[in-house]
Design a binder for these strands. Structure first.
Lengths: 269, 269
DNA sequence: TCATTCGAGTGAACGGCGTTAACTTACGCA
DNA sequence: TGCGTAAGTTAACGCCGTTCACTCGAATGA
């Protein structure tokens, strides 16, 4: 409504400056280097002044974490929007964008996807809310996958297998995204944990003893996972396919409805 | 040779007491709670005394990390040794032991498999050495996998695909374990990153928003990965198999030499 | 216009931290 | 028995988060 007052403008500017300083310290020196005194020093202030803007250092860091989730989500959405209409292409582009962001923003990735940080449990625990920054990131990945399942089909373990092994234990995920089918929920989690494992190991430097270029391994796994997901058996790894997945030219032609797991249906969204 | 002198005995006892106290603090309060002053307080000492035993707090924590690697490796080896001779059974038992250890020792898992810790880079970087605690843990997993590939066969993407995607980028891993074949190296890394992703997400509490019982998801993924690895096509998920993978009774009967990736060969170890 | 309110920022202080330096104590060995 | 030295102490330095009492200046209302 009313334009922000002068006070409010100054205030938001100061908040940004504090966060920028905190992020700079985080990137250059790790989480331990983020101290109120250091931030204030860089701003030409004293540490207690920051308490006018954040109730504690932990709250400031939680604010950073939320920002990073949003930044990552926007990056992923941008990648999706430039990938055309094919949901599989979108998922590939999004996965690559995810990895690129993590590798290019190690400290930020670590903050939101690594160890639980001492004061952030509360933030992490609120992940169930629909509008939690983390949940919104998840949604961005879930949607193309659901579309893929509905249109092109998705090869997953049969429902009886999933029922027996998982039952309703994926309920939190399924309910928070509009009653996902068990197959889609499982496919999402399987893919998510695989991508997470690869990126986290690369970012946390747990891969250097084994791989010289983690990106190549990432691409290989991406291709393998897609081949495993794709319904047509002749599309499996081994038919010479794989290297064309980067460009993905005429794959959609062969993507018939071999094992259409989730029949297309209206509504339920 | 000579029995340890009284001084030496006291010294090692004190070292153990320091490490025990540090671990207790780590478990109860996280890494930030591990402070020389707190350790010394619990021991009825003063903080500078610890410098007679460790050159710095970081060195003490690095020592803890090495201990944890060894403890985990011994746990995994014990699970392998009670799993019989089938290498696939061994791998399953080892994977479950890995997860159990991580879930039961969250702080310890976090220290060695989470964020790079500010003073541990040097320890992590030395992972290339054959006798690094982390490398030795890797070896424990590589060996049954290599055996499995040699005896029962292993379904992996064809060599041309791996060559094109990975080339010699897995050289560090392959060389440090007696010239592993590209297929086995890839299968190991694929499985390792998947298991790591699942366990890390569970331990780091990044799964609670989606799954109520992460163990069920772990078992599902284990079964899926095994089905994907097993050479016989009729063994794939969907043939009603899967739930018997926990006990794995007569699987070895069907494990023919369908796509024997690495022919059995003597030597080369 | 003037008085008042209140947000922003300061300086001092408390207790905690890792680490260093100088010092004392007591054990083990020749 | 004497000596060297390992083990432990106290004091101190400079960090840290946080609290409290305080000042200052800008916005606000009569």
């Amino acid at each position: 409504m009313t334009p922000p007052s002068r006070r409010e403008r100054l205030r938001t500017a100061t908040v940004s400056e504090i966060k920028d300083g905190a992020r700079r310290l985080l990137v250059t020196g790790g989480l331990d280097a983020v101290s109120l005194r250091a931030i204030a020093r860089d701003m030409g202030m004293t540490a207690p002044a920051i308490y006018r803007y954040f109730p504690s250092l932990e709250a400031l860091i939680a604010g950073l974490a939320a920002d990073f989730y949003d930044e990552l989500r926007q990056t992923v959405e941008a990648a999706r929007d430039t990938a055309g209409d094919d949901p599989l292409d979108q998922l590939l582009a999004m996965s690559r964008a995810f990895r690129r962001w993590g590798v290019g923003n190690r400290a930020e990735f670590t903050l939101i996807f690594g160890n639980p940080v001492p004061g952030l449990e509360e933030f992490t625990d609120a992940c169930g809310d629909e509008d939690h920054p983390g949940a919104r990131l998840g949604t961005v990945f879930v949607r193309p996958l659901a579309t893929l399942a509905a249109h092109a089909g998705l090869r997953t373990p049969p429902r009886e297998f999933l029922e027996e092994h998982l039952g309703d234990r994926l309920a939190p995920l399924r309910r928070s995204h509009g009653d996902l089918s068990l197959e889609v929920a499982y496919a999402f989690l399987s893919g998510w944990t695989r991508i997470y494992g690869l990126i986290a190991m690369e970012v946390f430097d747990h891969l250097r003893w084994a791989v010289t270029e983690p990106e190549a391994l990432f691409e290989t796994e991406l291709a393998a996972f897609v081949a495993q997901l794709s319904p047509a058996p002749e599309q499996q790894l081994g038919a010479g396919g794989g290297q064309q997945l980067g460009a993905a030219p005429e794959r959609s032609g062969a993507a018939g409805a071999t094992v259409r797991v989730t029949p297309p249906r209206a509504g339920s969204h």
